[in-house]
């Protein structure tokens, strides 16, 4: 690759370069089908969500827009619910909202979690020990239960405020994963060498450890997003979600409240569920694929 970029930038060499790079990507993708499958599922869902405002009529998600409890037909491919809303429109509007909660909370949890993880793994002495203590205690307390306490106090939650509340409790998993990686990495030769060269602690973390940790950070982010969505849907099913936003979890909550399962209105709960399951499977595959990328030893084993 370095030889190709050093060569004069004739059109021929450039096309050769992009071609070989593309081939590299494809051949890696062939070796890591898990990652490719996960990325494709998530891409389809996200594109679906981004296109939402252009393909559907917002009025279709208003109550009493149509007749109640219609089974799937040509007019309503996924039927309508007991409020007379079109299910397909509801799913298209709800998916990006659920993804948004996951992304905001996942990103915040990654920042908090990896900051604490680096501190916990890198620093010995009182700082590292106290951070490790806090993480251990937080890991012991089931986050969803504390979220229930918090969310029941903040009655009118929005998508954004819910994401922030979730982020405050979704970080310990990230901290543990990053912390143990850093712990093993700080014993490698390049860390003492950097120290002899006069680098400070934060400098070593940002310039030496961070670049080596990128795949792990990626996998942790995906895991955090998936945890956040899991928590969000859990809260929503319990009735602690954003009451006025049609997220996927809220759709399941309403269907549950109106006993959709035992009334045989399968399209009401099954449609959001299929999207949720696809989201989880996609995220799960990506994080497994990234693990494989980060840890080549796994490759031989699987």
């Amino acid at each position: 690759m370095s030889a190709a970029s050093a060569a004069p930038s004739t059109t021929e060499s450039r096309s050769l370069e992009t071609w070989s790079r593309r081939r590299e990507w494809i051949s890696y993708g062939r070796r890591n089908p898990t990652l490719v499958a996960g990325l494709s599922i998530i891409t389809v869902i996200v594109v679906f969500g981004l296109l939402a405002p252009f393909i559907i009529d917002q009025d279709a998600t208003r109550t009493t827009a149509f007749s109640k409890d219609l089974s799937p037909s040509l007019d309503h491919p996924l039927g309508t619910d007991s409020f007379g809303r079109d299910m397909l429109a509801l799913i298209i509007v709800g998916t990006p909202q659920t993804v948004k909660i996951g992304l905001i909370a996942g990103f915040m949890a990654l920042i908090i979690g990896s900051a604490l993880g680096f501190i916990q793994g890198f620093y010995r002495g009182p700082i590292g020990t106290s951070v490790r203590g806090i993480t251990d205690i937080t890991l012991t307390i089931p986050a969803l239960l504390i979220l229930i306490t918090v969310a029941s106090q903040v009655r009118q939650v929005t998508v954004e405020s819910m994401a922030i509340i979730i982020a405050l409790l979704a970080w310990p998993g990230t901290t543990r994963a990053i912390g143990s990686q850093v712990l093993s990495m700080r014993e490698r030769a390049f860390v003492p060498i950097a120290r002899f060269n006069g680098m400070s602690g934060p400098e070593i973390i940002f310039k030496e450890l961070m670049p080596n940790m990128l795949p792990y950070l990626g996998a942790s982010f995906v895991a955090a997003v998936s945890t956040a969505i899991l928590f969000a849907i859990g809260l929503e099913v319990l009735g602690l979600g954003p009451q006025t936003t049609n997220t996927l979890g809220m759709t399941i909550y309403w269907s549950q409240l109106h006993s959709a399962v035992i009334r045989g209105l399968w399209w009401w709960w099954l449609s959001p569920m299929v999207v949720i399951v696809l989201l989880f499977i996609g995220l799960f595959l990506i994080s497994h694929g990234l693990d494989e990328l980060a840890n080549p030893r796994l490759r031989r084993r699987v």
């Binding site: 859990g234 399941i252 709960w269 569920m273 949720i276 399951v277 989880f280």
Partner: peptide
Amino acid sequence: AIPYYLLGLILI
């Protein structure tokens, strides 16, 4: 990868 409670809905 599916949360238990959603699996529960399918089972019911």
